Computed example of a mutant assay.
Amino acid sequence: MSKKGNNNAGAVLAGLLAGAAAGVVLGMLYAPEEGKETRKKIRDKADDLANQAKDQYGQVTEKVKDQYNNISSQVKETTDKVVTSVKEGYDKYKTQAANTVAEVSKDIETELDGLK
């Protein structure tokens, strides 16, 4: 998930929670109840919203951790494949170069022996 996606999801979640809290508070303030009872309801609702926010935060955090672990694993696998490929290529061309040098060296010795 991109950082922009995380920011947008967080902003949407914060906006929803703030809107819900404002609606609950306004509804309770205009309800025809005693002030003490209204304050208790507001406090209870605020606690409920805080718990919901914590739950949502935990779920989002878990999803982000899972995605990070998946991406991290994919990067490690890809890196391992690239390193293996580079090593195999190096070994292959090193052997070919050594063989070519040996052949050229033999050819030079043969030519020099022919000139003697």
Rank of each mutant, 00 (worst) to 15 (best):
Glu62Thr: 03
Gly58Asn: 13
Ala22Asp: 00
Val101Trp: 12
Leu26Arg: 14
Ser73Arg: 05
Ile42Pro: 00
Gly23Tyr: 00
Ser73Asn: 05
Lys4Asn: 15
Leu49Ala: 01
Val82Lys: 04
Leu112Ala: 07
Val86Pro: 07
Asn70Met: 07
Tyr90Arg: 00
Glu77Thr: 07
Thr100Asn: 15
Lys40Asn: 14
Leu29Cys: 05
Gly10Ser: 08
Gly35Met: 09
Ala18Asn: 06
Ala98Asn: 13
Lys65Asn: 02
Ile42Ser: 13
Asp66Val: 14
Ala53His: 00
Asp113Gln: 15
Ser2Gln: 08
Gln52Phe: 11
Lys36Pro: 10
Ala11Glu: 12
Tyr90Glu: 01
Glu103Val: 07
Ala53Phe: 00
Asp80Tyr: 08
Glu33Cys: 03
Gln74Ile: 06
Gly58Glu: 10
Val25Leu: 09
Gly10Arg: 07
Lys63Glu: 12
Lys87Gln: 11
Asn51Asp: 06
Gln96Ala: 12
Glu111Ala: 15
Lys94Ser: 15
Asn6Ile: 15
Asp47Leu: 05
Asn99Val: 10
Val104Ile: 12
Ala18Ser: 02
Asp91Met: 13
Lys106Gly: 03
Ser73Ala: 14
Ala98Asp: 09
Glu77Asp: 15
Glu103Asn: 11
Leu13Asp: 02
Ile108Ser: 01
Leu17Asp: 01
Val86Met: 06
Glu111Phe: 15
Gly5Ile: 03
Asn69Pro: 12
Leu13Tyr: 03
Tyr57His: 09
Tyr93His: 13
Gln96Tyr: 11
Gln74Pro: 07
Tyr57Val: 05
Glu103Ile: 06
Glu34Cys: 08
Val101Pro: 14
Leu115Ala: 07
Lys4Val: 15
Gly19Asn: 01
Glu33Arg: 07
